[in-house]
Each structure stands twice: as C-alpha cells, then as structure tokens.
Amino acid sequence: MGERREGVITACGCRRGPVRVSRRNLLAVLASGAALVACSENAATGRSQFAVVPDETLREMADQAWADLINQTPTSTDTAMQARLERVGRRIVQASGRTDLDWRFVVFDRPEINAFVLPNGKVAAFKGLMDFARDDDELAGVLGHEVGHILARHPAERVSQQLAVQVGVGVLQAILANGDYGQHAGEIAGALGMGAVYGVILPYSRNHELEADRLGVDLAQRAGLDPAGAIRFFERMAIEGRKQPEPPEVLSTHPADAHRLAVLKEAVAALPKG
C-alpha cells in the first residue's frame, strides 16, 4: 500500500512511474554516496542493500511532500477515527524501536482503501481504509507494514535503483550515439530501460511488499496485537480487488493476492507462540 508524490518516492509505491531528477543531480548523488552506503547490510532484514541515496536527503524531500499533502488534501474531522489511528500507530512505532523519527499519523478524508508512509515518519491513512479495517488488529497489520518499510530502508533502496537505471541508460545512450548504432541509440536505450524496470525494479518492489508484510506481523505481535489481523485484512482486500481487473504479477509493483496471502500466513505461523 502506498503512493508516490511528485519528487519523492514513498516506502510503498502504487503503480506509477519513477521519480524524475536531473541527470547532473543523479550523477552527483551516485558519486557522493555510492562508496559509503551502496553495500550496507540492513539489521531488520538481514540482507545487504544497494542504497546510494542518504536517508537524510529522502527525509528532506519527504518534508516538502508532506507539507504539500497537508495543504492540498482535506483531513478527516472524525476525532475518534484520528485517535484510533494515532493509538495503534504509536504502539507499532514503540515496538519498532524507531522513535528517533518525528512520527505523525493523519487520517485524510478520501474514500480509497489505502495508506502510505514517507521516509520522514509521516503516515497517511485514508478514511476508506479506516472504515474498512474492522478492528485494531487489522489496522495494526496495515501500520506494521508501513513502519516495516522504514525499518527495511525501502525508500532509499527503491530510489537508488531507479536512479541507477536512469543514469545507466543515459550513459549507454551516449555511448551508442557515438558508435555504429547512433541513429538508433534512443530506441535501444529505451528498450534496455524497460528491461531494467521489468527485470529489476518491479521484482524488487514486489519483494519490498512481502518483506514489509513479514516485518509488519512481527511488529504487530511485539506491540501486543494479533498478527493474524493482517491476514484477515488482506483476505478481504483480495475480495475487494477482484471487482476490478488486475495486471499479471510480473507487470505489477505488488505481489499477486494469492502469493501475498501465502507469505503472510507463513510469516504469522513462524512467529513465536505465547
């Protein structure tokens, strides 16, 4: 769940295009950060990450995106709904240990069943989602997922992948333009760019969603809530999703419903009992 706002990629993006930044800025970011963070290991996931964009940079971008959202989108006047989101969200944050961020949880008055997190710890939940989540356990499944994206540093990883593809394709296009294939350089680079999107970025995005699900159920349990709430929530979301056509998993940023539910059930079953 999540969404991309212009100029910043959120932890959990909907099916939208990549961030657009000038090539000069891309090269500067890659050159300055690659040696420091390109091969860092994430403590929450236990795997190494390609992340050349510093978290501080993402948080600065997210601050502006959040300010724009607050100015442009009406917030809910339902104080009980807002209090519920805040109560469950704070429990998840305490369980995560990431109390260093300036977390804020806001219900926006929109009907979509959706939520997203920004790299600066700002969490938006739409009224449609708040109405859809039947209890705190289901809501904890959603918020655990969103906080899980931050623990896993998915925003930095995803933006880094997109920047690397943009820069790599640009460099390749410049090389081709000076060779025998100069007149077709744009078409060749474009085709290779699409290959990178479908072969690298989208699979990583799907893996991010599954990784956040696993972290989310663990956070829900550590927060004293029922981690199976996530299963119940996404089972009903899957039913809701059948009302509209869904692209094949290979063309989607999100895993197929059946795959996602299977991974969720495995994750909940693997949690320590009692």
Rank of each mutant, 00 (worst) to 15 (best):
V88S: 00
R91K: 09
S96A: 02
D102M: 04
W103P: 01
V106D: 02
F108K: 11
R110L: 09
E112A: 15
E112Q: 11
I113L: 08
P119R: 10
F126V: 05
K127Y: 03
D131A: 14
R134F: 01
D136G: 10
L139S: 02
A140S: 01
L143I: 06
L143E: 00
G144K: 04
H149F: 05
I150K: 02
L151N: 03
L151C: 11
A152L: 09
A152W: 01
A152S: 12
R153G: 11
R153Y: 15
H154M: 11
A156H: 09
E157C: 14
R158K: 15
V159W: 08
L163H: 14
V165Q: 05
Q166A: 13
Q166W: 04
V167C: 14
L172Y: 12
L172F: 14
L172D: 00
A174R: 13
A177Y: 14
G179P: 13
G182P: 08
G182V: 15
I188M: 11
I188N: 00
A189S: 10
G190V: 10
G193M: 06
Y198M: 12
V200D: 12
Y204W: 08
H208Y: 08
L210N: 10
E211M: 07
G216N: 13
D218P: 09
L219A: 08
L219I: 09
A220G: 05
Q221R: 14
A223Q: 15
L225P: 01
P227V: 01
A228T: 04
A230G: 09
A230V: 06
